[in-house]
């Protein structure tokens, strides 16, 4: 399976995969140094960074060897690390067989949820959370005067 467009989408899909196969699914986080990326400087269309400046890359991969399902997300933004690690913690709870608690985590995910809030509602276990998150997202959207970016993404799916 290919790269997912947003961290939120990756979280949603990974949650579903973990719910289905909690014992075999693993999550790998790969941090690639900038020098290594500069070496293989092929044009990567999935990265929206200009190809001239190379930064390190962080790739998240959820893989279930039993079914072969693979979910990937890639970023080069330092600002996303904190949020992604928090997502890993959340998915870790699911892995451990604990109930995936959602509150307290919303503050940071807010911005992404604004873009993907509708999809969140589709998740079986996360249905209730999707609602709450959407409200949070709306509040943030109102304060920001409604980003055009979010609207565009919603229309896509």
């Amino acid at each position: 399976m290919p790269y997912l467009a947003t961290a939120q989408e990756w979280l949603t899909q990974s949650t579903l995969l973990l719910q289905a196969r909690p014992s075999t699914t693993r999550i790998t986080t790969k941090y690639t140094h900038a020098s290594t990326i500069a070496k293989k400087s092929k044009s990567k269309p999935r990265r929206n960074a200009p190809p001239t400046e190379s930064t390190a890359l962080l790739t998240l991969k959820t893989y279930d060897p039993a079914s072969g399902a693979t979910l990937k997300y890639e970023t080069d933004k330092a600002a996303e690390v904190g949020r992604l690690m928090m997502i890993l913690g959340r998915l870790g709870r699911g892995m451990a067989g604990l109930e995936v608690r959602e509150e307290g985590a919303e503050g940071e995910v807010k911005e992404e949820v604004k873009e993907e809030g509708r999809e969140d509602g589709k998740v079986l276990g996360g249905a209730g959370d999707g609602k709450a998150a959407q409200q949070g997202g709306k509040a943030a959207g109102g304060a920001a005067g409604g980003g055009g970016k979010g609207k565009k993404k919603k229309g896509k799916k």
């Binding site: 909690p22 014992s23 699914t25 693993r26 999550i27 790998t28 986080t29 790969k30 941090y31 690639t32 140094h33 020098s35 290594t36 890993l88 998915l91 870790g92 892995m95 451990a96 067989g97």
Partner: peptide, 13 residues
């Protein structure tokens, strides 16, 4: 200690 290549982190039940 690492300056190039990648570092892999994984988590699993």
């Amino acid at each position: 200690s690492s300056t190039h290549g990648s570092i892999y982190l994984s988590q699993k039940r």
